[in-house]
């Protein structure tokens, strides 16, 4: 069975684990570099990107994450997306440069401006609608040529994919939505584990 890890340093990791448990995969709580070895894919949850940056550095996990991402899929939501970007407007956050996107933190405003909106998503050529919940969300300001947009809000990308990596500005794990996680679980890196 495919094993998908959730980076459990801080944030909504338990919600991601709960969604994965509804799918045909084994969910793994990842808190150390060595936990990555048994995973076929990794989710970096929402939370605070400054806090996660500090914890990743505290345990020297940065290089382990980079190495993991070369041949295995990574999916970041909200703060996780910020950590995957090539460019962010804040030097308090150290990114992994996994997706050719430029992001702005808390770009929609403070919590009072957090919102839920109806999203039109397309994965594998199949369109569907879902509710997207945006919490002090980051905005994708620019994307590289190789980045595919899977969903947008007001013309701005909110769900993107590049090769075997993907990222969302919103939180599919908070609305009981399984389709996004299910799609991610089908992505294949170059590495095949038994």
């Amino acid at each position: 069975m495919k094993r998908i890890g959730v980076l459990g340093l801080q944030g909504a990791y338990a919600k991601h684990l709960a969604i994965l448990q509804q799918l045909d995969v084994q969910a793994v709580d990842v808190r150390k570099g060595e936990d990555l070895e048994k995973c076929h894919g990794l989710i970096i949850p929402g939370g605070e990107s400054t806090t996660m940056t500090k914890l990743i550095n505290e345990i020297d996990m940065h290089d382990a994450l980079l190495k993991f991402s070369v041949d295995r899929p990574v999916f970041g939501t909200c703060a996780g997306m910020i950590l995957m970007a090539t460019k962010v407007d804040d030097d308090r956050v150290e990114t992994l440069n996994l997706l050719d996107i430029e992001v702005e933190r808390n770009a929609y405003g403070r919590q009072i401006d957090s919102f839920i909106d109806e999203l039109d998503v397309t994965t594998n050529g199949h369109p569907f609608s879902m509710r997207g919940i945006f919490i002090r969300a980051p905005r994708i300001k620019n994307i590289g040529d190789e980045v595919e947009v899977l969903a947008s809000v007001n013309g701005e990308p909110v769900l993107v994919q590049q090769g075997h990596h993907m990222a969302a500005a919103f939180h599919p794990e908070l609305t009981g939505e399984t389709r996004i996680h299910n799609y991610f679980s089908t992505l294949k890196g170059e590495m095949s584990l038994a």
């Binding site: 459990g8 340093l9 801080q10 944030g11 909504a12 990791y13 338990a14 919600k15 929402g46 939370g47 605070e48 909200c78 703060a79 919590q111 957090s114 919940i133 919490i135 002090r136 939180h171 908070l174």
Partner: peptide, 8 residues
């Protein structure tokens, strides 16, 4: 939703 993000 915000409370969930503060966990851990």
């Amino acid at each position: 939703g915000l409370a969930e993000m503060l966990k851990g």
